[in-house]
């Protein structure tokens, strides 16, 4: 069952990745696209393929995987299907960093100004969460700290918008916050990749601890799980992945919430299996959504985060009704 699921998800990723490379306003034929990508035939085509479409597809897969995995880890740690990576307040703080960079003009100084400011926001959020929640403590204090940081970041973001000098600045900020993968470069890929890769490797190694947590914190501790360490690892890894994802793509919501929820029945609800399944599933969802924004309204610059929310919210409602039907 899980092998079939893994195979299906990997095939979907490959297919959607290829599709993502072949779709765009330049209107290249598939043959010319591939020739340009692989052999560098044609200067303009090569530029389009290697500098625009390839980073876009890689970022979609990478960010989707990161958000899906972070969501599965948060749900596993809290034993709550409503948990999502945004709960820690890291995405909100990363957005705040980016918004401040846009507002102050730091973002316009150099290409990585905005993502670096967003990463700084994420790092500050992690420090604040760990200071608030204390070194030893349960999951409840972590959530309370996350909500506090999240609310603070939201309020400060609103303040920046409130004080923005002109409507253009405000709308630039608003559009950035909707989340998008358009016009990203390989530099963005190289910036986000290490954070997402390290976070993923660290979280995937915690599968057993999440499995043991199925029985509650006391039982997990008696099975040899070091809860304080797990909590620290979780915060750092989730923050690393979500901070990097938000820094390069803006806020892409619902992926971390919906993907683990959809895939849970297919892995027998085992939290450890759900980790890798949600990473693959997240990549599928974001790749598909990023293709959809280019196909649905190609000339209106539909934002990725808007689409994931529009698709994700009804999907989630459907799941809520299904859960209600089962009387759970």
């Amino acid at each position: 069952m899980t092998r079939v699921l893994a195979l299906v998800l990997v095939l979907l990723i490959v297919a959607l990745f290829a599709l993502s490379l072949l779709i765009g306003p330049a209107g290249l034929s598939p043959a010319r696209s591939l020739a340009a990508l692989l052999r560098g035939e044609g200067l303009a085509e090569t530029l389009v393929m290697r500098e625009i479409r390839l980073p876009r597809a890689i970022l979609a897969a990478m960010i989707g995987a990161g958000l899906g995995l972070a969501g599965a880890a948060m749900q596993g740690y809290l034993r709550n299907p409503l948990a999502e990576p945004g709960l820690l307040g890291v995405s909100g703080s990363a957005a705040l960093g980016a918004v401040i960079a846009l507002q102050t003009g730091f973002a316009a100084q150099f290409a990585l100004g905005l993502p670096l400011a967003a990463l700084l926001g994420a790092v500050l959020a992690v420090g604040l969460i760990l200071a608030l929640a204390g070194p030893r403590g349960g999951s409840l204090t972590l959530i309370l700290a996350g909500i506090a940081v999240s609310a603070l970041a939201g309020a400060l973001t609103a303040l920046v918008l409130n004080l923005s000098p002109n409507p253009f600045a405000a709308s630039e900020i608003m559009f950035w916050m909707m989340g998008s993968l358009a016009d990203r470069s390989m530099t963005h890929v190289w910036l986000a990749a290490p954070f997402i890769a390290i976070g993923a490797v660290v979280l995937l190694a915690q599968g057993r601890a999440f499995d043991a947590l199925t029985l509650g914190e006391d039982s997990a501790a008696s099975l040899g799980v070091n809860l304080s360490r797990l909590r620290l690892v979780l915060v750092l890894a989730v923050a690393s992945m979500v901070g990097a994802a938000t820094a390069v793509a803006g806020a892409v919501g619902f992926v971390g919430l919906v993907v683990p929820h959809i895939l849970r029945p297919f892995v027998g609800a085992r939290p450890s299996s759900l980790l890798w399944a949600s990473a693959l599933g997240g990549a599928v969802l974001v790749l598909a959504a990023d293709i959809a924004v280019r196909l649905v309204l190609p000339d209106r610059d539909l934002k990725l985060g808007v689409l994931t929310a529009i698709v994700g919210a009804p999907l989630f409602l459907h799941l809520v009704f299904k859960t209600r039907g089962q009387g759970l």
Partner: peptide
């Protein structure tokens, strides 16, 4: 150790 709270967090 079998704690008093009987928790099974997921439908496994």
């Amino acid at each position: 150790w079998l704690p008093q709270a009987r928790e099974i967090g997921w439908p496994v």
